[in-house]
Amino acid sequence: MKILVCVSKTPDTTSKIAFKDGNAKFDDAGVQWIINPYDEWYALVRAIELKEKNASITLHMVTVGGADAEPIIRKALALGGDEAIRINADSNDSFYIASQIAAVAKDGGYDLVFTGKETIDYNGSSIGGMVAELLDAPYVSLATKFELNGTTATVTREIEGGEEVNEVALPAVVSCQKGVAEQRIPNMRGIMAARTKPLKVVEPVAVDALTSVVSFELPPAKAGVKLVPADNVAELVRLLHEEAKVI
């Protein structure tokens, strides 16, 4: 059994979001980079748990990024897993990124590909579905529980107002979110072990991007909160009804 976990480098949740070059690029000055939380806390940790239960599982992780993504992938290796692959390319087009991951996944013959449900920077929720399509494999998205049973998996996924339990044949692609696993902190042994784990660098395959970011913009600043005295709740209701027109 071989599992591939897709990890992405994203700005820390608390980063100040700003743009440069005439709003064409994300301004990364002073930004702390982390592993996308959905990739790390849920997809990666669940894969590590599966390997802990069954030592014959091989666990690889893959990222698409430049050399500056390596500290992130070492951190991922410190949590667990056998080996990491960095595809040496930089892009914000989902199809381009997914095509790179699919090429690695095809070569490696993985039984299971995990992604986070979305990245906290581009919020596309697209990589898992695209990789699945390119591999011609089934896809279960927004998983909240995941269990392996031989050649199939039982996956609970989010639906509107509830959950649905799916039985899916492997190989498959699954996108993970809260519920699948709990966040872990790497320990010193893991950090030491990560230093000697293989981190392979592969060159990208030739693919045309299907989209390009023209510009970024920040939302208009909030006008500021309108405070209503605690003894005049009726005034709040009037404002919501007559001014904001939301009730």
Binding site: T13, Y122, L210, T211, S212, V214, F216, E217, P219
Partner: peptide, 15 residues
């Protein structure tokens, strides 16, 4: 929306 609602991106579809 990008950056979890903290900004917007204008994206051109070229296909």
């Amino acid at each position: 929306t990008v950056f979890s609602g903290k900004a917007f991106a204008n994206v051109n579809i070229t296909s």
